[in-house]
Design a protein around this nucleic acid. Structure first.
Length: 808
RNA sequence: GCCGCUGUGGCGGAAUUGGCAGACGCGCGGGACUUAGAAUCCCGUGGGAGACCGUGCAGGUUCAAAUCCUGUCGGCGGCACCA
């Protein structure tokens, strides 16, 4: 079969028939199958794209044959750093390179023959799309979910530019290797923390990989504890957060993060100089130092004291950068006896270490950080664990010094980027009116083309006079625009909604269309997005719901991660490893169906693994055998024949395959689905080799075989369907359904064990009772030989599997 | 350091969730066809002459363990001073 020609032919026919489109008017149940859209960084599709889109498309086609109205859109996540970095290096404008890449990739995606609904295509870098990304920003701003504050960012002193977190590798700039420093800049944030609790609890109901749910759970990092107020002699109050309030009687000092507002305020005259110096030094600490947990702790005494509310003891207040300002209250009560960090710090600075928890079993070696019995804690002595913390927290609440509190590790989402190739932040700064959102009617705030994007420490847009200079929408006076662009993750956090109504120019989407299509039923993409894209998208969905734009809670009901195809050497494919394998030559030589089928067969889908093309010839051979067999049988007369044992066996093989393939495709277990197809083909060939055969029956099996195969090798199956006289498209046929009656055999082979050792096999009639089976087995010569003269103690029968006779 | 996943023939990988380990395929060996090769087709293929031994290793539970439990070692991923 000339696959190239066949592919082109069917792609054109499907396209002409509008076959790939979601049917607007249809009462079939909908199925929204979505693969993560691609980032057009290179010009060509790589194996990862193929591995994501090929098998997932087979799933979508399978669902279509099962009678669903399938919606499978595609698009491009087109803003982002690589295009801009490429521009800095080569001078090619990001818009030009991105558009060119998209065009090439579109062609390749079409050639792949996936069932994409191109009428819903989305590109995030066009004004028709980012207009609505900006609109999203404005809605969040109105709702109080977008706010501006000063925050430390990653700064590369060599490139003199801000870096995204993803660009910081082990504390250094990914491009030049220079150590990144922290710099305070005023930035826009989305208040994702407001949804921390729901983002956590919502995980439970999701059909997602447990691993991914756990990663999100850890990322959100809920911890329950107690907030406690320590009164300073100066009259200031220091709030601390602790998960171990049962250790509060062991507090020997309190620590503030260097950035804490009280740090300067409470410092005494004598200590002021040292405190200032320490704050200064901490602010300059670079990322590598901060990342190192092994480094020795540093700190400085403020000279101030505060009072432990539970025992009235005065304790010194220190500053130390092992306390993070961004978590909890930015202050900590230090209990060196029961915390490793406090222990190390107290040991270094000669602070007291007071044991207040006793190990129930054995010696209490300090620092002892496990749960134990409270000692030296007056009324609370003898309490332990959860109960102890409960009592202490209640006591603290009673005396008005705090109480139970839940904290999250999740931070608000920093969305400002000092970069060019992104959606401009739709905000105007007016000297009179302050921060003013761009009115919705003025959207989009267009990204200008003629911009100097070589980095020099300022946002590229800041140097563009025409862009920056504007008038205040409120007072009409002179004003300036925000020079930053939005993190590209903002663009990708709502694209799955836009697909539902991609052409809409009056709104991001029509409520009815979104309600009809969403949520996404099955979402397929890489696991690397677990704590970014997948979390942001959930957040935005919930925020839009609360603003009344949607009425569902979660965007992606089911999530599947494909594995990673590594280079043949077992490393991640990369230019530096020189191990990149391109799909192109394989597609050229074997055709897109064979390549897809090989990706499905050669790997466990969710695991991936090192690339090897050992099996691709086998797939080509498999397809050849199918073609030969199908075309040969096609020419047989259609006469009915008898239905005997051989027919029954083939019928069993057919319905076994139907059941298994159906379940395997449902579960993204593509390799076993293909294996079952191979088995069925083997059964067909075996039957075909018989001298006497029922041709009409054989033809009906071959027909089912083609239908089963169709989602996995779409062009190939369509062609054979056509050549064997099938009506319409094969994809308009219903997927075969297993007939359980055909799976009932007259007798089944059992493994026969004596004392758990296999001694032989035996055919046992299907209806036999437990006693009958035992009697049958005991009459077998292999059994008699081993059981002679012994008493049978027990007989275990596992239906359709084995019989185990325990004798002794 | 903490959390999670994972370890099965020469290779990719199966195993109905505690029930015949190694499905399906690659590779390899043998044969058929052919002047010959390629292609194709058929047979065999975990190890061991054998009793038996085999799912990283050592124990345990069970009539029965790749699967459950305890310990331990290797590989991968995430988090990393989160109080």
């Amino acid at each position: 079969m000339n696959m190239k020609e066949v592919e082109r032919k069917w792609q054109a026919r499907w396209e002409k028939a509008g076959f790939n489109r979601f049917e607007e008017k249809s009462d079939k149940p909908k199925k929204y199958v979505l693969e993560m859209f691609s980032y057009p960084s290179g010009a060509k599709l790589h194996i990862g794209h193929w591995y994501n889109y090929g098998p997932a498309d087979s799933y979508a086609r399978f669902k279509r044959m099962q009678g669903y109205n399938v919606f499978q859109p595609i698009g491009f996540d087109a803003f982002g750093l690589p295009a801009e970095n490429y521009a800095i290096k080569t001078g090619v404008h990001p818009k030009d390179s991105t558009e060119k890449n998209i065009e090439t990739m579109e062609g390749q995606l079409r050639a792949m023959g996936a069932m994409f609904d191109w009428s819903a295509e989305v590109k995030t870098c066009v004004p028709e799309y980012y207009k609505w990304t900006q609109w999203m920003f404005l809605q969040l701003y109105k709702k109080g979910l977008a706010y501006r504050k000063e925050a430390p960012v990653n700064w590369c002193p060599s490139c003199s530019t801000v870096l995204a977190n993803e660009q910081v590798i082990d504390g250094a700039c990914e491009r030049c290797g220079t150590t990144v420093v922290r710099k305070n800049l005023t930035q826009w944030f989305f208040k994702i923390t407001e949804y921390a609790e729901e983002l956590l609890s919502g995980l439970e109901e999701l059909d997602w990989p447990e691993k991914t749910k756990l990663m999100q759970k850890n990322w959100i990092g809920r911890s329950t504890g107690c907030e406690i107020e320590f009164d300073c002699d100066s009259g200031d109050k220091i709030k601390v957060f602790t998960t171990r309030c049962d250790t509060v009687f062991g507090v020997s000092y309190v620590v503030l993060a260097p950035e804490h507002p009280l740090a300067r305020k409470i410092a005494t005259e004598e200590c002021r100089a040292a405190v200032e110096a320490y704050i200064e030094q901490a602010s300059k600490a670079n990322e590598i130092d901060r990342l190192s947990t092994a480094r020795e702790k540093t700190g400085v005494f403020t000279g101030a004291y505060c009072t432990n509310p539970v025992n009235g003891k005065k304790v010194p207040v220190w500053l130390a950068d092992y306390v993070l300002y961004s978590y909890g209250t930015g202050a900590v009560m230090a209990v060196p006896a029961h915390d490793e960090r406090d222990f190390a710090f107290a040991t270094k600075y000669g602070l007291p270490i007071v044991k207040v928890i006793e190990n129930v079993e054995g010696e209490t070696e300090l620092p002892y950080t496990q749960d134990g019995i409270m000692v030296g804690s007056v009324d609370f002595d003898g309490l332990s664990g959860e109960e102890a913390r409960d009592e202490v927290a209640n006591h603290i609440a009673k005396i008005g010094k705090g109480g139970k509190k839940v904290n999250y590790r999740l931070r608000d989402w920093l969305v400002s980027r000092q970069r060019y190739w992104g959606a401009p932040i739709p905000i105007i700064y007016c000297p009179v009116c302050g921060t003013v959102p761009v009115p919705e009617k003025d959207l989009p705030v267009e990204l200008p083309y003629d911009v100097e994007f070589r980095p020099d420490g300022k946002s590229p847009l800041a140097k563009h006079e025409k862009f920056m200079h504007t008038v205040c929408p409120v007072c009409g006076g002179e004003a300036t625009r925000d020079p930053d662009t939005l993190d590209t993750f903002v663009c990708s956090s709502w694209y799955y909604l836009r697909y539902a109504d991609a052409q809409n120019d009056r709104a991001p989407f029509d409520r009815n269309k979104v309600d009809r299509l969403l949520p996404v039923d099955t979402y397929v993409g890489g696991a690397e997005h677990a704590c970014m894209h997948l979390l942001y998208a959930r957040f935005l969905t919930k925020a839009l719901r609360d603003m009344g734009y949607l009425d569902f809670d979660e965007p992606f009901k089911r999530l599947v991660h494909q594995g990673v195809i590594l280079g043949p050497d077992g490393n991640r494919m990369s230019k530096s490893h020189g191990n990149i394998v391109s799909p192109d030559e394989y597609v050229e030589e074997y055709g897109s169906d064979a390549f897809r089928l090989y990706l499905m067969f050669g790997f466990s889908y969710t695991e991936g693994g090192p690339w090897s093309d050992d099996g691709i010839k086998a797939i080509a051979r498999f397809l050849d055998r199918i073609e030969k067999t199908v075309l040969k049988i096609k020419n047989y007369p259609s006469s009915e024949g008898s239905y005997g044992a051989e027919e029954k066996a083939l019928d069993y093989a057919r319905h076994y395959a139907i059941g298994r393939v159906t379940r395997d495709l449902e579960g993204f277990s593509f390799n076993t689905a293909v294996a079952r197809l191979m088995e069925l083909l083997n059964a067909i060939c075996k039957y075909d080799a018989l001298p006497e055969k029922n041709c009409a029956f054989l033809k009906s099996v071959v027909k089912d075989f083609l239908l089963l195969l169709a989602p996995c090798a779409p062009h190939f199956a369509e062609e054979l369907w056509d050549q064997t006289g099938g009506k319409g498209f094969i994809f308009e046929q219903p997927y075969p359904v297993e007939d359980p009656a055909k799976l009932v055999l007259d007798e089944t082979e059992y493994a026969v064990q004596v004392n758990s050792k296999i001694v032989c096999k035996a055919m046992i009639p299907s209806g036999a009772s437990g006693e009958e089976i035992e009697a049958l087995v005991r009459a077998l010569p292999e059994v008699i030989q081993r059981a002679e003269g012994k008493t049978v103690r027990k007989c275990i029968v596992v239906p359709k599997r084995l019989v185990n006779l325990i004798v002794g």
